[in-house]
């Protein structure tokens, strides 16, 4: 899940609700996580320095936006590479072709 969140933030700064709806719509409702569980994840990423947060008032509401940091960008690259290796290996097994 870290990788998906970091990937969304690599595109633009987002607030929690926006991330949840974006994940659901892009995955054709496959990733319908329980929304409250997103926040411990975001706060952990913030604490480890992968994202930073700031508040902004839009449409009369103050929202807490998250932004990908350089450290978060490096983490995303590592996770994406690991995922590609892993999914390639799974596909190779399922399709019966050597990796």
């Amino acid at each position: 899940m870290d990788m998906l969140i970091l990937h969304l933030l690599a595109e633009r700064d987002m607030y929690g609700y926006e991330m949840v709806t974006e994940l659901a719509s892009r995955s054709s409702e496959v990733f319908q996580l329980k929304e409250g569980t997103l926040y411990p994840l975001l706060h952990r990423l913030e604490k480890e320095g992968s994202v930073s947060a700031y508040e902004e008032k839009k449409e009369g509401r103050v929202r807490r936006y998250y932004r990908l940091t350089r450290k978060g960008g490096e983490k995303l690259r590592e996770r994406t590479e690991a995922w590609e290796t892993y999914s390639g290996a799974v596909n190779a097994v399922l399709c019966g072709t050597p990796g």
Binding site: L33, K34, E35, G36, T37, Y39, P40, H43, K47
Partner: peptide
């Protein structure tokens, strides 16, 4: 319901903060 189990969220948030 969409937010999930508050006890689970409570536990995770308390561990971080």
């Amino acid at each position: 319901e969409a937010m999930g189990d508050p006890v689970e969220v409570r536990r995770d948030l308390a561990a971080i903060h």
